[in-house]
């Protein structure tokens, strides 16, 4: 790990004021410290924000405001989250380990970096780590990589489970920075790699996440978070599905669907969601939506399996949501 200056901030204004070139904010540190050990991140200054008053979970405009420093465990086990946003709870508990969830924060979860092998290996080129150096994942070892929205510069995937649920819930990210506060719709917070894969998000330099705001609609009756991975626990998603439905009898009135493990950001297809509305909640309906989504897939040399895996996971996820039988977190059999 490189040497760095350490600053401990007590307010958001102090934290923002301490920011400069080469500085990084640190909270849970579960990803940043790991990246520093690999010398992928070499910050000149760490600004410790763990003592900012952003730990709480509060009622907000009919929904909940999750403080940026509320840990993943605190959010997942909050009784209001469990009752009103079980999709978020399940997504958080599908990720990482208990130890990591005890340390990792809401804001940090949004900002974790890809687990692309090449990004993590400072001995190889990587356009995300060193812009312009190349992408060995293209044509290389890429079974975990993107099938949607990749560019010829980067095929990395976004790693978070929590963010897939937040995308489906249409949360809002509130940030504070040198130019004051602003609110970013969740769909606009993460970005596709395009020609600037070094940028994971639309945050500006010196901006800090202060809260994630959940709208009232939580899909607490008909939801699932279905995560498919190489081992049954403590592994990143190959494909995951966050699904939320509202039904009138058997007819779908609202549908939300976000996919993880397949793109540089939580992947949504609003055309497919619109196609579901007004239709009967049947396997045939779900298959049409799944077919529409995977029609856009552009697999890499080793991850063609993800296309069919995603298609089936979408259908199964929507079936689980419609039936009100979300994927169990401990019994890993997929019903």
């Amino acid at each position: 790990m490189n040497r760095f200056d350490y600053v401990r901030a007590g307010t958001v204004a102090e934290a923002v004021g301490a920011f400069g070139d080469g500085a990084r904010f640190i909270a849970g540190g579960t990803n940043l410290i790991d990246l520093m050990k690999y010398e992928v991140e070499k910050p000149g200054r760490l600004i410790d924000i763990t003592r900012l008053p952003l730990q709480g979970i509060e009622e907000h405009e009919g929904g909940l405001r999750l403080g940026a420093l509320a840990t993943n465990a605190k959010v997942a086990y909050d009784a209001r989250v469990a009752e009103r946003y079980p999709l978020l709870r399940n997504a958080i508990l599908a990720g990482a380990s208990a130890q990591l969830r005890n340390a990792a924060t809401t804001g940090g979860n949004l900002l974790q970096r890809t687990r692309c092998y090449y990004f993590y290996d400072a001995g190889t080129p990587c356009n995300k780590r060193e812009p312009g150096s190349g992408c060995p994942a293209i044509g290389g070892v890429n079974r975990i990589h993107a099938i949607f929205g990749a560019s010829d510069q980067c095929i990395a995937t976004h790693p978070s489970d929590m963010c897939i649920a937040l995308a489906a819930l249409e949360a809002t990210v509130r940030v504070s920075g040198p130019d004051g506060e602003r609110a970013i719709p969740f769909a606009e917070f993460h970005r596709l790699p395009g020609n600037a894969p070094e940028k994971d998000t639309t945050l500006k330099p010196g901006e800090i996440v202060v809260s994630v705001d959940l709208p009232e609609r939580g899909f607490a009756r008909n939801y699932t978070y279905l995560k498919l991975r190489d081992r049954l626990s403590y592994a990143f998603a190959l494909v995951s599905v966050a699904a939320g439905l509202e039904l009138d009898g058997d007819t779908i009135t609202t549908a939300r669907l976000a996919l993880g493990g397949v793109a540089h950001k939580p992947w949504r297809n609003q055309e497919a969601e619109a196609l579901l509305v007004g239709q009967p909640a049947t396997r045939e309906t779900f298959a049409k939506a799944a077919d529409l989504i995977v029609a856009e897939a552009k697999p890499q040399s080793e991850n063609g399996f993800k296309v069919e895996l995603a298609r089936r996971a979408i259908v199964r996820g929507l079936e689980q949501a419609a039936a009100g039988t979300p994927q169990s977190l401990s019994d890993k059999r997929i019903q």
């Binding site: 790991d34 050990k37 760490l46 410790d48 130890q99 005890n102």
Partner: peptide, 26 residues
């Protein structure tokens, strides 16, 4: 030393965390 194995698990204020991914100063 990367938070993947759990051998470094300790309790901080009663909560289990990976000591390898924790800066002492924090």
């Amino acid at each position: 030393d990367h938070g993947q194995c759990g051998a470094c698990t300790v309790l901080v204020n009663g909560t289990r965390v990976n000591a390898c991914l924790t800066l002492a100063v924090m």
